[in-house]
């Protein structure tokens, strides 16, 4: 049975890593210009926002949740920040207000899931629609918000270079490092693992599970806001239609592909890095090969599908142990 493939040798992370290395080698050999330093920087840079969102999602998924509102938070809070700046609010307060909006969304998610006991999938799905609709309706009446001149002071966040390395890559590294430190070394981080591994046991042994759930969604929303600001400053605008795109699936793809089981309690930030790299290599390669965008979408969906199938084979569920209503 595939269920036995749990040994470290054939873990999903390793499969993905090997696949990424093989793809990297093949692309390096056969694709012209793939191996150039400029292309490699572009490659990582293009997926660094995805990686930051992946870190946010990873924190939630490890605690046996899922945050489908992550992209809505990412786009709408950044859009509101730019909108506020456009309306004449100083950039500092505008950034803080945007962060406050994102954290509020995260808190509501957490409260709905922890206290109203609404399943995470539905709570965040509903919140995604609500946040998008609410911000478009009440705060940002435009589809695309451009960065105003008075916000130029923060354009280094997404557009700068440090020692020749684009800042998004460095920020991705920083977020990944902090995320890893949180999960691996803080008490809350360890409790999140415990909660994801066995929720009832964690609660019974006294972990403050409700507070932890709220914390992880608030954290995920705050990290999503960071990603939003990186995007906004990198391309000097926010397109709110990204909420209706397939970005959310790419974020899940990064997490699941990297080997963080959706049933929680497994994996870490390292898996996000591996997943992000594979996606980066694939997208970059397909772009160089000049594959149509729509076909790229089909390929990406198929890869995500196989990742989920693989996930369920490595972490199998069965009729006897399955939780009723766990969809």
């Amino acid at each position: 049975m595939f269920g036995r493939i749990k040994s470290a040798l054939v873990s999903q992370e390793r499969i993905v890593l090997v696949t990424a290395v093989i793809l990297f080698c093949v692309f390096s050999l056969f694709l012209k210009g793939f191996l150039s330093a400029a292309n490699l920087l572009t490659l990582v840079r293009s997926v660094s926002v995805l990686g930051v969102l992946g870190v946010a999602m990873a924190i939630v998924v490890i605690g046996r949740g899922v945050d489908l509102a992550i992209v809505a938070t990412y786009a709408m809070s950044a859009a509101w920040t730019l909108r506020l700046a456009t309306q004449g609010v100083a950039i500092g307060p505008a950034l803080l207000l945007g962060l406050a909006l994102a954290v509020a969304v995260g808190l509501i998610n957490g409260l709905l899931i922890a206290f109203a006991e609404i399943p995470a999938l539905f709570a965040t799905l509903g919140m995604a629609a609500f946040v998008y609709g609410f911000v478009r309706f009440a705060l940002v009446p435009l589809v695309v918000v451009y960065m105003p001149a008075n916000a130029a002071s923060i354009s280094w966040i997404g557009g700068g270079f440090v020692a020749g390395v684009p800042t998004p890559i460095l920020l991705f590294a920083l977020v990944a490092f902090l995320g890893h430190a949180f999960l691996a070394f803080t008490k809350a981080g360890r409790f999140i693992y415990a909660m994801g591994d066995n929720f009832a046991a964690a609660r019974n042994s006294g972990a403050p599970v409700r507070g932890l759930i709220v914390l992880q969604y608030a954290l995920s929303a705050a990290i999503a806001y960071v990603a939003g600001i990186i995007t906004a400053t990198a391309v000097s605008s926010v397109n709110t239609n990204v909420v209706n795109s397939s970005l959310i699936y790419d974020v899940i793809l990064v997490v699941v592909l990297g080997g963080i089981g959706l049933s929680g309690g497994r994996g870490g930030i390292r898996n996000v890095l591996v997943g992000t790299l594979l996606i980066g290599i694939l997208l970059n390669g397909m772009t160089i090969m000049n594959i149509q965008y729509t076909l790229q979408n089909v390929i990406r969906s198929l890869i995500l599908l196989s990742a989920i199938v693989l996930d369920s084979l490595v972490n199998p569920r069965d009729e006897q142990t399955e939780q009723q209503g766990d969809i």
């Binding site: 709905l112 109203a116 006991e117 399943p119 609500f130 998008y132 609709g133 911000v135 478009r136 309706f137």
Partner: peptide, 24 residues
């Protein structure tokens, strides 16, 4: 004649309400 966001907002809210009722 509400703005485009209103529909999404209301559907999201109604979804949360419906599932909340269901769970409770």
């Amino acid at each position: 004649g509400l703005e485009s966001g209103a529909s999404s907002m209301v559907v999201g809210l109604v979804l949360l309400f419906a599932i909340g009722i269901d769970v409770r």
